[in-house]
């Protein structure tokens, strides 16, 4: 099916249906297990950034040189020391 016929034959959602869809999406996101999962993901990611990264994250785009420049390490350097994480 090309794009035009897709647009022609795909039934458009009515205002009420769209609003119901939006509501159910918000409802699905607004659940305690989702919130807890999200907060745990934030915890793991942020602790990696502040306490562990030696160039790993930037190496995804920058390649091997990220391990020399260590931008995130330098950015969080003083906080890393002050928070008790090992450094250098």
């Amino acid at each position: 099916m090309d794009k035009l016929s897709y647009n022609l034959y795909t039934p458009k959602l009515t205002h009420t249906e769209m609003s119901t869809t939006k509501q159910s999406t918000v409802k699905a996101l607004d659940s305690l297990p989702v919130a807890i999962g999200f907060l745990i993901a934030v915890l793991v990611f942020t602790m990696f950034v502040v306490g562990y990264d030696q160039g790993q994250l930037f190496s995804v785009v920058e390649g091997q040189s990220a391990y020399d420049t260590m931008w995130i390490h330098e950015l969080t350097h003083d906080m890393r020391h002050a928070a008790g994480f090992p450094c250098h």
């Binding site: 942020t46 502040v50 969080t76 003083d78 906080m79 890393r80």
Partner: peptide
């Protein structure tokens, strides 16, 4: 960067 680091550390 300590300010960005503080915000990230705090959020975590």
């Amino acid at each position: 960067g300590a300010f960005a680091g503080g915000a990230i550390y705090g959020a975590g």
